[in-house]
Write a protein that binds this DNA or RNA. Structure first.
Length: 278
DNA sequence: AGTATTGTTGAAGT
DNA sequence: GACTTCAACAATAC
């Protein structure tokens, strides 16, 4: 789940729940998700107030009153929640922050445990340490184009590369490429300035639309490719495969292929394959 | 039972 | 050094 729109939605939730609160205790149910040793994390958190939140790509920051930040990365299946009493803890709560004033517990939920929690000196320090590029909502069209154009690699893996721009994940990259009408196997070096602008506009459109819907993909417009993804089939097991057709071409079936090792959906008509693609 | 999965990292190969 | 491919991580769902 957690691509940029989910993380932004989580951040807003945390912001409402936790800003102004003091951390009374750190509860660790599974140390596997800790990227900072538990003792060190506890020493850095307990007694501190949460002064604000921010986000960079798929990273969510809880700003502490001493300038340090608690960095939350949600991996593939991370989520946040809140509860008051332990029996009500969401399933797969791996870590919980006990909040002093409200008495609530902020849960870091992650079934697959690919997510990570760490303490960092600042958001900027974390960005540098992890080589994270500009946020996908903040990067300019010129910078995006310039970064893509000097790389002789398939476009899709480039857009997934968090050091180029941060926040795009597998589903959103497909959506962006569909909206921009560009094939995922184009090489970065072949992207024209005009196409760069189209990509930038598509990134903005997809992200702002998804955030507006609080990352509930089922509520995205019918013009979005995402409805062709297979998770929609399970919701309507008896239905035909109408959803596997291009939103712009009712007769054209959406292609599924693997690009850069990741499942990739495209419209063969909207997104012509480059001559080099096999 | 076998397959798939939204993210990231590192190793090994070209 | 640039790039590609693959495995690993862990758990669930179909």
């Amino acid at each position: 789940m957690p691509e940029l729109p989910e993380v932004e939605t989580y951040r807003r939730f945390i912001d409402e729940l936790a800003v102004g609160q003091t951390i009374a205790a750190l509860q660790v149910n599974d140390a596997h998700v800790l990227a900072t040793p538990e003792d060190q994390l506890r020493a850095g958190l307990v007694g501190r107030a949460i002064s604000g939140t921010s986000r960079l790509g798929k990273n969510c920051f809880l700003e502490l009153d001493n300038g340090q930040v608690l960095v939350l990365h949600f991996g593939m299946t991370g989520d946040v929640g809140a509860y008051r009493d332990e029996p009500d803890a969401p399933r797969f709560t791996r870590v919980a922050l006990h909040l002093e004033e409200s008495g609530l517990r902020l849960a870091f939920i992650d079934p697959r445990k690919f997510g990570r929690i760490r303490l960092a000196e600042s958001a900027a320090a974390h960005q540098k340490a992890k080589k994270i590029g500009p946020d996908a909502l903040a990067i300019t069209a010129a910078e995006l184009h310039q970064k893509l154009a000097r790389r002789k690699t398939l476009l899709k893996p480039l857009l997934l590369d968090q050091s180029i721009t941060a926040g795009l994940g597998n589903w959103i990259v497909d959506e962006v490429l569909f909206q921009a009408k560009i094939h995922p196997e184009r090489l970065g070096t072949t992207i024209t300035e005009k196409e760069g602008n189209a990509l930038h506009a598509a990134v903005q459109l997809v992200l702002t639309t998804a955030i507006k819907q609080e990352a509930n993909y089922r509520h995205l417009p019918a013009s979005f490719l995402i409805h062709a993804r297979e998770w929609d089939t399970s919701a309507t097991p008896t239905s035909d495969d109408a959803h596997t057709f291009c939103p712009r071409h009712p007769k054209v079936k959406i292609d599924k292929a693997y690009v850069g090792g990741r499942a990739t959906y495209t419209c063969p008509k909207c997104q012509p394959a480059p001559a080099s693609a096999k």
